[in-house]
């Protein structure tokens, strides 16, 4: 496992409080209930994973935390402040890398710094370089986005999301479009960065093994309308190996809960 050598500093992570949150969608004159009465507190520095069947509203909840959507009822608070719109306190990483193709790698990473710190150009570049070395891509500083492999793009996206020092990092289905080997490497990177930065991370997946490998706490959702049916704490030491039998055992118990619900 590679050693992290970086001077980048990060501030304290945030506490997220989800209170009585429900969400309904209008579709063809019909009201569809996506989420029902969610109550959840996510502690500073905790890695929480939402797991559930497709359409259970777990991605909707993540979008509401990011501020892309508003709850129909209830409130979401970050450090006591209500979430109403997107903000770089709560930075989202998407399924697709979503890197800007008109910028090179280093400009992508430094982009968010412009709106966060009163940094001049030189300091922005310095911090972006530190983040780039955290994901071990120093030699690709000036590369165009399309020149990177899929896994490298996601690592740049990760560095870009961490650069503005968010209180909480949101990860929507990390790395679904990548091959198994690259994914497992990224699980390692993500855990490494989690340990290093101490960030609060919330991630969504339908892969139970991924949930067991990454999460401190796995929150299991029922089918639509989504409710929390169980929370499982994962107390395995980090970094965890995706193929560790202990991870497999917890993955099975998550799977059992999901099947039980059906």
């Amino acid at each position: 496992m590679s050693q992290i050598e970086t001077t980048a500093t990060f501030t304290k992570p945030g506490t997220l409080s989800i209170q009585n949150v429900s969400k309904q969608f209008e579709s063809d004159d019909q009201e569809v209930s996506a989420l029902a009465k969610i109550n959840l507190t996510i502690n500073p520095g905790e890695f929480v994973i939402f797991v559930g069947p497709s359409g259970c509203g777990k991605s909707t909840l993540l979008n509401m935390i990011a501020g892309f959507e508003r709850p129909s009822e209830g409130t979401i608070l970050l450090d006591g402040k209500q979430v109403t719109k997107p903000h770089n306190d709560r930075l989202m990483m998407f399924q697709e890398h979503a890197l800007f193709p008109w910028m090179n790698v280093i400009d992508n990473i430094s982009y968010g710094l412009r709106w966060k710190f009163r940094f001049n150009w030189k300091k922005r570049k310095q911090r972006a370089r530190e983040l780039l070395s955290m994901v071990h891509l120093e030699q690709f500083e000036k590369a165009s986005v399309h020149q990177l492999s899929g896994g490298m793009k996601q690592r740049v996206a990760l560095a870009r999301a961490l650069a503005p020092d968010p209180k909480i990092l949101l990860v929507d289905e990390p790395f679904p479009a990548l091959d198994a080997l690259t994914r497992q490497k990224l699980y390692g990177d993500l855990q490494e960065l989690f340990t290093r930065t101490g960030k609060t991370i919330v991630s969504v997946t339908h892969d139970t093994r991924e949930a067991a490998c990454l999460g401190d706490r796995v929150v299991i959702f029922s089918g639509r309308p989504g409710r929390i049916i169980k929370e499982i704490a994962v107390n395995l030491p980090r970094p965890r190996d995706f193929n560790d039998p202990e991870v497999g055992r917890i993955s099975e118990s998550i799977m059992a809960e999901l099947q039980h619900e059906k």
């Binding site: 892309f68 997107p86 800007f100 968010g112 503005p164």
Partner: peptide, 26 residues
């Protein structure tokens, strides 16, 4: 997705046209 990424990265509304929209459509 570019617009969503720009918003979550903290781009203020006034900067959207020249930082994101025009470059993305270039």
């Amino acid at each position: 997705i570019y617009i969503r990424a720009a918003r979550t990265l903290g781009t203020p509304a006034y900067a959207m046209p020249y930082r994101i929209v025009l470059p993305a459509a270039l």
